[in-house]
Computed example of a mutant assay.
Amino acid sequence: MPVVIESRRKKAETVAQRWPGATVADVTSKGPEPWVRFSPFFPHGGIPIPNTSHDTAASVEGLWQGLKVFEKEDIDPKKWAVTDMRNIKRAGASRGAVRGHRFGVGSGTLLGYREARFRIYLPAYAWVLKNRLAREIERLREVARAGTVVLLDYETNADVEDLSRPLSHAALVRHFLEETWPEQPAN
Rank of each mutant, 00 (worst) to 15 (best):
A81V: 05
Q65C: 07
E13P: 01
E33N: 11
L122A: 04
G62Q: 02
A158E: 07
P185R: 11
S29D: 05
W64Y: 08
R95S: 07
I5G: 08
P123C: 01
R117N: 08
P123N: 05
D26S: 07
R99A: 11
P32W: 02
D55E: 08
P50Q: 10
K79V: 02
V82C: 08
R119G: 00
E155P: 03
L163A: 14
R174L: 09
P77V: 11
L122N: 02
F42N: 01
G62V: 01
G147H: 00
N157F: 13
H175A: 14
H44L: 08
F118Y: 14
R132S: 10
V24G: 02
S29K: 12
Y121G: 05
V98W: 12
S164F: 04
R139I: 04
K10T: 05
G46C: 06
Y113D: 01
E178D: 13
V24E: 01
P77M: 07
R114M: 11
E142A: 05
A186E: 15
S94R: 09
G96K: 12
P123Y: 02
S59C: 04
L133P: 13
D76E: 13
A170Q: 10
S164C: 03
V98E: 13
G92I: 07
F176A: 06
T148A: 03
P34L: 08
A97K: 12
L163F: 13
A134N: 03
Q17M: 03
I137V: 15
R86L: 13
